[in-house]
Amino acid sequence: MLAVVEKKENGFIATYNRPLNHSVEKVWAALTQNGKLQKWMPNLEIVDLQKGGKIKFNMNDGTGNSFDISILDFEEQSYLQYEWGEGWVRFELSPKDNGCLLVLKEYIPALSDHTPKDLSGWHVCLIMFSAVLDGKYMDFPKGEWEKWYEKYVKVTNQL
């Protein structure tokens, strides 16, 4: 399911809704425990999990380079929001029958040629995230990313 991208007063919000057949506790662990997080988003490393805390973004290019991302908002097993480029991303969890709903929101201040790449990247990361929850590990599926990239190019061209 494609993200819904909406124009807002000072930018855009992309929203991905993912109903999951897993408990809030299990999903939260995959979002915040480094051993699980790095199976679907290998660049991220939680350093200080709290509002005002930090996440390290490791370049993973052999240079050892990294930079810090600030945690903007946080409530244990409910939501996690952090900087993402010039904008932010927010993961929200709510319990549902037989699992929970994961809502990923990305605030994008301005559209660019990079926007559909970023949107398709999050889309594929959510596929990888679901695989981790199911006890499976997968490498980044470049072909899958390319398929979603074309769809997100169409979405952003309509905005």
Rank of each mutant, 00 (worst) to 15 (best):
V4Y: 00
V4S: 12
E6S: 14
E9F: 07
I13R: 00
A14E: 04
A14Q: 01
T15K: 11
T15E: 06
N17D: 12
R18V: 12
L20F: 00
L20I: 04
N21L: 07
N21P: 10
V24A: 03
K26E: 13
V27Y: 02
V27S: 00
W28V: 08
W28Y: 10
A30W: 03
L31A: 07
L31Y: 01
T32M: 05
K36R: 08
K36I: 05
K39E: 14
P42C: 06
P42G: 09
E45Q: 12
D48I: 10
Q50A: 15
G53F: 07
K54R: 13
K56V: 09
F57D: 10
F57A: 06
M59G: 00
N60K: 14
N65K: 13
S70N: 15
I71Y: 00
L72R: 03
Q77G: 10
Q77R: 14
Y79K: 06
Y79I: 05
Q81C: 11
E83C: 08
V89T: 01
F91A: 00
S94T: 14
P95H: 08
K96T: 07
N98S: 12
G99N: 06
C100F: 06
L101A: 08
V103C: 05
K105M: 12
E106N: 12
D113M: 13
D118E: 13
L119C: 06
G121C: 01
W122I: 09
V124W: 04
I127V: 07
V132Q: 02
L133G: 03
G135R: 00
K136Y: 11
M138N: 05
D139V: 09
K142Y: 14
W145D: 10
K151E: 15
T156I: 13
N157F: 02
L159E: 11
